[in-house]
Design a protein around this nucleic acid. Structure first.
Length: 222
DNA sequence: TGAAGGATTTGT
DNA sequence: CAAATCCTTCAC
């Protein structure tokens, strides 16, 4: 079991006390062996964990989108290429791509090897400000990972991670929803909203975007 | 071999 | 609403 990184002394601001709880169980590849539209809403509430050296960053997923092999918006819709090859891999692989020459976006590959299904992680709710970031207000912290490009920048997710496997012993992995999050959904205190996907030109009508209602860390408008 | 354009973000 | 910015993808 992975221990949280020890608290670094000397961070005068931005650190909060919410990062000491026990880690949730890591999500198994078998759990991801379902179609992307099935997995995507269930990934909301799960935690994306990133380790870079001694630093461990955690963020609750609050917005996702699903892409499938027969979906015209999918990068792998036409055929397998060098860029999208990871999407054809086994569930539990990571697919990272560069967009507009500037940003990176990260996907979780689902379903099964040979079929290009993946879930785009679009926004994270951070519990604490990463050491290299600046967030003096709660609002700034909320917006730090509010978007697929922003969360990759904050988590240091780049192209070398493309094709690697989610692994609690590695640099990137997923943890299951907390009981509190699941209870919140059960009680209706937390609600998932399903809408059309954002920023695409094909498959525009397909409603495969999910986000946490009223969450301040969701990209654009909730 | 070349050009178009993209699962975005930011500022005007 | 347009720029930034780069490399994959697809057409010639």
């Amino acid at each position: 079991m992975l221990e949280d990184s020890r608290e670094q002394s000397g961070h005068p601001r931005g650190e909060r006390d919410g990062d000491r709880g026990p880690s949730r169980p890591a999500i198994a590849d078998s759990w991801l062996a379902r179609s992307a539209p099935e997995v995507a809403p269930e990934l909301v509430g799960c935690v994306l964990v990133r380790r870079v050296g001694e630093t461990v960053l955690r963020g609750t997923i609050v917005e996702t989108e699903a892409y499938t092999a027969d979906d015209p918006a999918c990068h792998a819709y036409r055929r397998q290429t060098k860029r999208n090859a990871a999407m054809f891999g086994a569930p539990g692989l990571v697919y990272v791509y560069q967009i507009y020459g500037i940003h990176r976006c990260v996907n979780i590959v689902t379903l099964r090897e040979g079929v290009a299904d993946a879930v785009l992680i679009r926004a994270l709710q951070l519990e604490a400000c990463p050491p290299d970031e600046v967030a003096t207000t709660q609002r700034q912290l909320d917006r730090l990972a509010a978007g697929p490009g922003k969360l990759c920048r904050v988590f240091g997710i780049d192209l070398p991670l493309c094709g690697t496997r989610l692994d609690p012993a590695g640099e990137l992995w997923l943890e299951a929803r907390s009981p509190e999050f699941s209870d919140g959904l059960d009680r209706g205190e937390l609600q998932l909203v399903q809408t059309a996907r954002i920023g695409i030109t094909r498959g525009v009508e397909i409603p495969w975007r999910w986000y946490l209602k009223d969450c301040p860390a969701v990209s654009k408008k909730g």
